[in-house]
């Protein structure tokens, strides 16, 4: 018998066991159930179910909308993080707390508030409508709601990195003759890029799955402003459980591919 190797960090077996059990119960089994359900349809039935024009339109809106919303959130998120980290002003803590509101607010409340604001007779909706820009009940409204819930992700991932960014790097750039814009572009932004991408990925992932805040402002017109999660609910209400699960599987696969791609970009960046 070989003597047991002493581990300087004991408890590995136990902690891994608990973790796996946890993952199994909360993630793997439900996911497996989701994957198994559409099997009832058979391969052809599954394919037919997820390639219906209405499903494709909903998936397109959910994914492209989420990407657009996440991208649109990056500049304001970066700006908010910058202001929070770099300046001291009265009300900074208040602003700091407000950033997390989209996290804490029940999504339905956010959705109703946004709808009221951007509806054709709302405070912002009315003047925008006068300019010929319709927000509520259009894909634009969907993107707006998605951007609203995504903002905290960008701010909270960029903030710690920005705080750790040494001021000396910017000062060094200045002494080397760089203008402020050159310093931001060549020194600050590249240092923040990995955090921005991580925030972008999280905001996009959240936006893809977002339901409550989107459905009120979306208007949910099939083929136009209907998101994929809503379509799942619609199918559930029609007792088409396998069809609902099929859309779920399609979303799962697309989300997985998206996150994989973003991960790949990150890895390439790190190597460059």
């Amino acid at each position: 018998m070989t003597p047991r190797r002493r581990d300087p960090l004991p408890g590995f077996g136990l902690s891994l066991g608990v973790t796996l059990l946890w993952l199994l119960g909360l993630v793997l089994i439900p996911l497996l159930a989701l994957l198994l359900r559409p099997l009832e349809l058979g391969p052809a039935g599954f394919w037919h179910s997820v390639t219906e024009p209405r499903v494709l339109a909903a998936l397109r809106l959910s994914f492209l909308g989420a990407l657009a919303a996440a991208a649109a959130t990056v500049p304001p998120g970066l700006l908010v993080a910058w202001v929070l980290v770099r300046y001291r002003f009265p009300g900074r803590r208040l602003l700091d707390g407000m950033v997390d509101l989209p996290f804490a607010l029940p999504t339905a409340v956010a959705g109703l508030a946004l709808t009221a604001l951007y509806a054709p007779n709302g405070w912002l909706g009315a003047p925008l409508a006068a300019l010929g820009l319709k927000v509520a009940y259009t894909p634009l409204g969907v993107v707006l709601a998605m951007a609203f819930v995504g903002l905290p992700f960008i701010v909270r991932t960029v903030e710690p990195v920005l705080r750790d960014l040494p001021r000396e790097a910017e000062e060094a750039a200045a002494t080397l003759g760089a203008s402020r814009a050159q310093t931001l572009w060549r020194v600050v932004l590249p240092a923040l890029a990995p955090a921005l991408l991580a925030g972008f990925a999280m905001a996009a992932a959240r936006a893809i799955g977002e339901y409550g805040s989107v459905i009120f402002i979306a208007g949910n017109m099939p083929m136009v402003s209907e998101i994929a999660p809503l379509l799942i609910v619609v199918r559930l209400e029609q007792f088409d459980y396998a069809g609902a699960a099929a859309v779920g599987v399609a979303m799962l696969a697309l989300s997985f591919l998206l996150l994989l791609a973003l991960n790949l970009v990150q890895r390439l960046w790190r190597r460059a």
Binding site: E168, A169, A172
Partner: peptide, 17 residues
């Protein structure tokens, strides 16, 4: 600073990481 053309070496070097 950027127009002074002075070389500055920082205590912790402040290299661009």
């Amino acid at each position: 600073a950027r127009a002074r053309r002075l070389g500055f070496v920082f205590q912790n070097y402040a290299l661009f990481r």
